[in-house]
């Protein structure tokens, strides 16, 4: 346990020393500050009577016709913002953690770690846990702060916003596993970053597998496309799920329909398989 804690701490210490942690939180803080100071809302009897963004009054027919229901406004903002965070949060997290395995495997470094009484799989998994905690801490800092600003400005408390963080974290966990697998295979931060982002976009792309397969002449190609869709994380569905979970009953039907267990399970399964393969390879590797 002491070894595990030391390894997790080391991930944070390394991130801090390399300015990753500072940059990660600084970008988030700037965003929070801009958001909190830029928006001024005038709420009268639970309805938005007026709004200013960067000091400029917002002109809207709804505002002139008696105001916008503030509950609706918060729900709409948080749903949309959670999808924005889904993309940005995932990208930031993968950038901030892609070096974890390649750096560990560098000559002169790996010897120092593996010569301690710690199993290889335990070492790899502790780095993984450290990376995930690093991503989670920033995600919850960003979402928590935005949530508090929204509560402060609107007095509307909507805890469902945090459900988005859990989904985003699942997606990060899945792609981080893939990044670890590439990291153990190649030992290159650059390759791990490029392939992980490529996979993210590929998984978005194959979400339209039904329409794409219909346009293909080859049944084999269509089958491969369907197979690829089922193997890869369900990036698009998870984005829809983020919106649907935060919006709750107010979510549009086409998004709410995405809220099934299957995308969650296949996304998690992809992560588990990648992490198992990374552990297997790391265990067998000669350094």
């Amino acid at each position: 346990m002491r070894t595990l804690v030391a390894n997790v701490e080391e991930v944070f210490r390394e991130a801090a020393a390399r300015w990753v942690l500072v940059a990660y939180f600084a970008i988030s803080t700037i965003f929070i500050l801009v958001f909190s100071f830029a928006i001024n809302l005038d709420i009268v009897d639970g309805a938005l009577a007026g709004a200013k963004i960067f000091g400029q009054a917002v002109e809207s027919r709804d505002l002139r016709n008696g105001g916008i229901d503030i509950e609706q406004l918060v729900l709409g903002f948080e749903s949309g913002f959670s999808v924005f965070l889904y993309i940005v949060g995932t990208f930031l997290a993968l950038f901030a953690t892609a070096h974890l395995v390649p750096r560990l495997q560098e000559k002169g470094t790996i010897d120092l770690y593996l010569s301690r009484p710690v199993g290889r799989v335990q070492l790899l998994l502790s780095r993984y846990l450290g990376g995930l905690l690093l991503s989670a801490s920033n995600l919850f800092y960003l979402m928590g702060s935005i949530w508090l600003v929204v509560v402060w400005k609107t007095k509307v408390v909507h805890p469902q916003f945090f459900l988005a963080a859990l989904v985003i974290l699942l997606v990060i966990a899945s792609f981080l596993s893939f990044s670890f697998l590439v990291g153990t295979l190649t030992g290159s931060t650059g390759v791990a970053t490029m392939t992980t982002f490529s996979l993210f976009f590929l998984s978005l792309f194959v979400a339209a597998h039904d329409r794409m397969a219909a346009a293909l002449d080859s049944e084999l190609a269509a089958g491969l496309l369907h197979g690829l869709y089922w193997i890869l994380p369900k990036t698009q569905e998870m984005g829809k799920a983020v919106f649907a979970l935060v919006a709750g009953e107010e979510a549009p039907g086409r998004l709410a329909s995405a809220l099934t267990l299957s995308p969650f399970l296949t996304t998690a399964a992809f992560g588990v398989v990648c992490l198992a393969l990374a552990s297997w390879h790391f265990q067998r590797k000669d350094f």
Partner: peptide, 25 residues
């Protein structure tokens, strides 16, 4: 090890602390 590379951002004291903890001290 030959050509070992301790993390440059650690102090000597922190290095011994980190690797000591990894050895279960």
């Amino acid at each position: 090890p030959e050509g070992h590379r301790f993390p440059g951002y650690l102090t000597a004291r922190a290095t011994l602390s980190v690797f000591g903890q990894m050895s279960g001290v």
